[in-house]
Design a protein around this nucleic acid. Structure first.
Lengths: 138, 138
DNA sequence: TCAAACCCTCACATACATGTGAAGGTCAAG
DNA sequence: CTTGACCTTCACATGTATGTGAGGGTTTGA
């Protein structure tokens, strides 16, 4: 597929797709006329990249970890240098920290939301009318 | 405590602490001489902010969700506007997505690491020597 | 009293992910 | 053949989180 289709199917601007290619996160074949030509598996790839970017990883790191995540590995065992291993371990641990931080705060938000809606409004709103949320009118 | 101590105890530059204050994420008392004076509970607060920033949340969003996470809520139920509720729900869901993305990729990294070190090198490396590092030239 | 170690504000700089637009090539349909 | 919808590269702009440093006040200890 060409860049326009990949852009539509991933919700990513063409500009960004070219930027990801420039950063070495994706690659593209070229048609005879110079147009980029993408394998359909890049749809998933791009969405994975976007997710990791959104979760705070910089392209430099994403570029390093991506080849280790493919089913048929693009980086094989003999290619793994000790520094590479160390980087992966560090990033794995950082990702775990992020997960813990996000989970903690998300749960706190969820708890607040439960209190604020379904919960007992403590001092105001004495009317149990059919407003506010998941509880349908009873 | 003054800004230097808070900086040391959170691993955050003074510049950043002032920036977080400018963005409304933290507040400070002022001593008679104009120096910032922080309550010790800001150590945790700042580390929470750093974690969320590192996980991809912008200060604008962090500022909105922070007051809902305190034990004695700084935002109470009647203060919660419908837009505020909607924002919190949206961010809660985005955080869940981030957690899922991070978990997925972290587990894939962990799996790769297990394969590359303890695992059986599948097609190359017929020598079970005690190195486990990058195989020297064959 | 002087120096060192704090603190202040303000301003400019940088890295990164992203937007926008110009100048131009390709291709298909009218 | 022309128009419109694609594509190309290149370059400049922007927002956000950060670094760095200048110019200057305060406090403490030798």
């Amino acid at each position: 597929m060409r860049i326009g289709e990949l852009s539509e199917r991933t919700g990513t601007s063409r500009r960004l797709l070219r930027y990801y290619e420039e950063q070495g996160l994706i690659v593209s074949e070229r048609c005879a006329n110079g147009y980029r030509d993408y394998d359909p598996r890049f749809v998933d790839r791009v969405m994975q990249i976007r997710g990791l970017l959104d979760a705070g990883l910089p392209t430099r790191i994403i570029k390093q970890i991506l080849p280790c995540l493919d089913k048929p590995r693009s980086i094989h065992f003999p290619d793994a240098t000790p520094e590479m291993i160390a980087t992966l371990e560090r990033e794995r641990d950082r990702m775990t920290e992020r997960v813990e931080c996000l989970t903690r705060n998300r749960d706190a938000i969820a708890e607040y939301l439960e209190e604020v809606r379904g919960g007992v409004p403590p001092v105001v709103a004495a009317e149990p009318s059919a407003t506010a949320g998941p509880r349908s009118a009873d």
